[in-house]
Design a protein around this nucleic acid. Structure first.
Lengths: 223, 223
DNA sequence: CCCGGTATCAAAGGAGCGTTTCATTCAATC
DNA sequence: GATTGAATGAAACGCTCCTTTGATACCGGG
């Protein structure tokens, strides 16, 4: 921290271009590995090997594995915003029905959860965090998960004509999140239980439709 | 040190207390800890401390942590069969509708997942295994999970009038299992996201009904 | 009383991992 | 050219954890 403060006083421009890339490479490697394997399963040595950096670099640039994890989340979030999967669908122009809003939210979640490459890292890290918590679990939840779930609760509460914090609404949201978490964190089990299961975008569409239909049917059940 | 102190003060008593047998105490302690914290998070020392046994006892009696885990699953399975939660409901006398069968299966799963005490250990260990695999993941799946899921697939396939190995059926089963896994393995996250959420039997009933309704509505959707 | 197998115990071995140390390289500054 | 501080690299430290070792206590059969 003293080094960073000294750097900022002398050269306040940007530390991004001053760092010869090691910091950035560490963030990319960390985001990818944390997304695919979770916090505990990834060793600092793994990240440094992939980033072609020395093991001491993590502590030098970030101050520890936990700090790197937090920084990787923010890094992945920015990358996801920049190179989004479906930027075209971001302006549907016009008011959406609650069902459309729901489908849109769920599609955003599942398509990112099943994405390959940097665009999916953020969602995948955050989903992993729920089953394999880092030391900053509560912070991650408050900053990244809770806001998203509140949006879902609002939409589903509207559809069900119930309070967004009722058990009925929150149970549905939990079921949706659970499904995303499951395919993210139980990949080995799913591959053994459902050989040939494809973790791809068509699958994401299928699950999006299933979850949307589940909510809609719960809101307006059959006779 | 607490262990040592406790043992020093009650040396002879502890020895006489060995009546249940070290092996049995290890199995109980292992099953409970594996059920609540998963394979990796539980240290052999934790199990031995709870079982009032020496750390070497695990390797002496079982041959390693992984073997103890496998034995604990079998031990928990037998205990669950012996002191079941709802033995009364085991003889409903008469043919059941597919919906009744489904509700019964799901209630068995969720009530055990939310149970306190030995009756829930087996289900909880097996659900944990999916997100926190032990070295014998595939064996555990084949022996304990896959048969159960095939039953669910048969019932749901019948309800949906689709092949039990179709995506539609298997996706529904995955969603159900995902929900059980979620509340089992994301307890810390759930407690932070839903303060006051009760991991009790009424909650198990609620989720059972929700999952049953979800399948029924998918089988016969509203107009 | 001795003896051999069983069970337990304290202690240490050995591996993996996060972190630290310290020497060195490099670029900018004076 | 010397100096300064950031950045890197190799090695090691400290810790946790699973496992092993060798000694010891117990106990039924010679």
């Amino acid at each position: 921290m003293t080094t960073k403060a000294a750097r900022n006083t002398t050269e306040n421009v940007s530390h991004a271009d001053h760092s010869p890339g090691t910091r950035r490479r560490l963030l990319d490697a960390a985001a990818e590995l944390f997304a695919t394997r979770g916090y505990r399963s990834v060793a600092v040595r793994d990240i440094c090997e992939r980033a072609c950096a020395n093991v001491a670099a993590v502590n030098y640039h970030f101050g520890g594995k936990d700090k790197l994890h937090a920084a990787a989340i923010e890094h992945a979030r920015e990358r996801a915003l920049r190179e989004d999967l479906a930027p075209a669908a971001s302006t549907p122009a016009g008011p959406m029905t609650p069902q459309q809003k729901l489908h849109r939210q769920l599609h955003g979640m599942f398509s990112r959860a099943f994405a390959n490459g940097p665009a999916g890292w953020y969602m995948q890290i955050v989903l992993r965090e729920m089953v394999d918590p880092s030391p900053a679990l509560k912070q991650t939840i408050d900053d990244n998960i809770a806001p998203y779930l509140r949006k879902l609760e609002a939409i589903i509460g509207q559809l069900l004509r119930q309070e967004p914090d009722s058990h009925a609404v929150k149970d549905l949201v939990s079921c949706i999140v659970a499904t995303a978490v499951y395919f993210q964190s139980c990949r080995a089990s799913v591959e053994h239980l459902r050989p040939g299961f494809a973790f791809d975008q068509p699958c994401a569409e299928r699950l999006t439709d299933l979850m949307t239909a589940m909510v809609m049917h719960t809101a307006a059940p059959a006779a």
